[in-house]
Design a protein around this nucleic acid. Structure first.
Ligand SMILES: [Mn+2]
Ligand SMILES: [Mn+2]
Ligand SMILES: [Zn+2]
Ligand SMILES: [Zn+2]
Lengths: 147, 147
DNA sequence: TACCAGTTGAGAACGACTCTCATTATCTAC
DNA sequence: GTAGATAATGAGAGTCGTTCTCAACTGGTA
């Protein structure tokens, strides 16, 4: 049977969803786990991973692969938008470039794929990382300092 | 000292690079490993992973995160291009939408990020996956049949 | 209240990737 | 060529994010 056929909005799942909706910074599953334990201390990691998966498959959240790290990031903003990603620290902020539909339509005509959407990530350096001449590898240190 | 300061083009590394350049299908590291063993049977997995990392950091290959699976994919085509990705089986083909520079410039003006580039992935269903009414989850089965 | 599908947490399992380290290959003087 | 220095290699262990397993539990429903 397919999972999440009759999903309940249990207190644990509500807590995960609340945390995600209060997090505009595209947290990892592990970060969601840390934050949700502040209001639901006994929750298990498996429940957080399962709930995030359910939210994604029911369209209440997006799973992002920002390429920098190994872990997926989650986004409660399910409206069409793009991302601006810092190549050094991984910080990701919402942007919307509004790629012309004509460009996507051109792909439809020149391939035999059925197009369902697109994912655009703009890469760059955030203000913090421009200021600190880094080592060349990711240094998300300043993220901790902004709690 | 930074790695790959004086990289040598050893027979193993040449074999990996040759395999990648003969692979327009964006193989995973594991797939590169399988293919390179046909010409360099004794090569170790660590060497393949290390070599792919070196090729990426020296600009001779691209590492892609196509979001569908868990593993990175590699691309010897280092010219500017985008990707059309099948959401069911993960097949990825090269496309080029030519996103107008004006759109990217707009991001530069409205944020304090320094923009270095962008990554555009168009999502859809490949012809194979349109034909086979699937289970809803990835089914790369038909990829094997095309050797 | 009894039923029972759905949910939960702990820990094991998994898979992609990285690290360690002893051995081997290659380069650079002589 | 030979020797010594430096870099590369492969096996296997280790890491880490994520998924799986399963026994206990919960919460709608009749
Ligand atoms: Mn977002
Ligand atoms: Mn490509
Ligand atoms: Zn940054
Ligand atoms: Zn497909």
């Amino acid at each position: 049977m397919s999972p999440y056929a009759h999903p309940r909005l249990t207190p644990r799942r509500r807590a995960v969803l609340d945390v995600l909706r209060a997090s505009p910074d595209h947290p990892t599953a592990s970060e969601v786990y840390d934050r949700v334990r502040e209001t639901a201390p006994g929750i298990g990691a498996a429940t957080v991973y399962r709930t995030l998966g359910m939210l994604v498959s029911t369209g209440q959240a997006l799973e992002l692969n920002l390429g920098d790290g190994v872990s997926a990031r989650y986004d409660a903003n399910v409206t069409r938008h793009d991302h601006l990603v810092c190549e050094r620290c991984g910080r990701a902020v919402d942007v919307d470039l509004g790629v012309p539909a004509a460009l996507v339509d051109a792909v439809t005509r020149t391939t035999s794929f059925t197009i369902t959407g697109y994912d655009l990530q703009v890469r760059g350096l955030c203000p913090h990382c421009q200021a600190s001449p880094g080592t060349g590898h990711p240094d998300p240190g300043h993220l901790e300092k902004e709690h």
